[in-house]
């Protein structure tokens, strides 16, 4: 289980996160929705300690860490139990698909290179890129890069995978295959927090939908509650901009 409590984060004078609380059970899929600038990316980055939150705490399994007093070791420990899939893939440019997956295994998890390679190839197979193992990022399409990114995250066997708009940089025809892969990981019991603008997908995959605005969680509940019977006016207004997608979501029921 992952529990975030009272997460605050400011950049210079601007307060971006104003006390976020979120619990994610093992195997649960949480989708975060919200307008641009509401702090969704910042929240994910705080969970992965890519940004250091000013206040609040994070609990993953047995480790409980206070953001304001986190030591280097705490940070490393949390990072090694969480994995991030980035909007712009963030693959290592000078490493092949296979090596991108192996680096973390060898350096962070101290796996033997040979075992790391086996696991990397296995995961590439899983994401449908077995034949691209020795390709550099520049030789891969956006969708392929994102699947390598997902394989890299999976390899670390994290408690939770954080997805930040994993399909928003992709050409429309590549979105489907990437979403299908994420769905597969969810079905296999992966715990994840996913920021997305794909309303239909969120409706289909989420156990819990969270609507964020202005650095706070405005509303949260099951997809049916949030999409079909939103209690808050701000949620209704936000969702009304996506009515087409919402219909897609309802059709999926």
């Amino acid at each position: 289980m992952i529990a975030l409590e009272n997460v605050h984060k400011s950049f210079q004078k601007q307060q971006v996160l104003k006390g976020i609380n979120l619990k994610v059970e093992k195997g649960e899929v949480v989708c975060i929705l919200g307008p641009s600038g509401s702090g969704k990316t910042t929240f994910l980055r705080c969970i992965n300690f890519l940004e250091k939150a000013d206040q609040g705490s994070i609990k993953i399994g047995a480790s409980q860490v206070d953001f304001s007093t986190a030591s280097k070791n705490d940070i490393l420990k949390i990072r090694r139990q969480t994995a991030m899939v980035f909007q712009n893939y963030a693959l290592f440019n000078n490493k092949t698909a296979k090596e991108n997956i192996m680096v973390g295994l060898i350096l962070a998890q101290k796996m033997l290179p040979q075992k790391a390679e086996e696991l990397a190839l296995e995961l590439l197979q899983k994401v449908g890129l077995a034949d691209r193992a020795d390709f550099y990022p520049s030789q891969l399409s956006g969708g392929q890069k994102q699947r390598v990114g997902i394989a890299r995250a999976l390899a670390l066997n994290p408690e939770v995978i954080l997805f930040d708009e994993p399909t928003s940089s992709l050409d429309p025809e590549l979105v489907g295959q990437t979403l299908a892969l994420i769905k597969q990981i969810a079905d296999e019991g992966g715990t994840m927090i996913l920021v997305t603008h794909e309303m239909g997908f969120a409706y289909e995959i989420a156990d819990t939908v969270v609507f964020m605005e202005g650095g706070v969680i405005v509303e949260q509940g099951t997809p049916d509650e949030v999409f079909n019977h939103p209690a808050e006016e701000r949620t209704q207004q936000f969702l009304s901009r996506f009515t087409d997608h919402q219909k897609v979501g309802q059709q999926a029921v």
């Binding site: 992965n48 300690f49 890519l50 490393l76 990072r79 090694r80 969480t82 994995a83 991030m84 980035f86 712009n88 893939y89 963030a90 693959l91 290592f92 440019n93 680096v103 973390g104 350096l107 962070a108 998890q109 890299r152 670390l156």
Partner: peptide, 16 residues
Amino acid sequence: KGQYDAAKSIGLTTFQ
């Protein structure tokens, strides 16, 4: 910046 983010996120130490 993405290269730094990726390195941190997979749990590498600063030295690594």
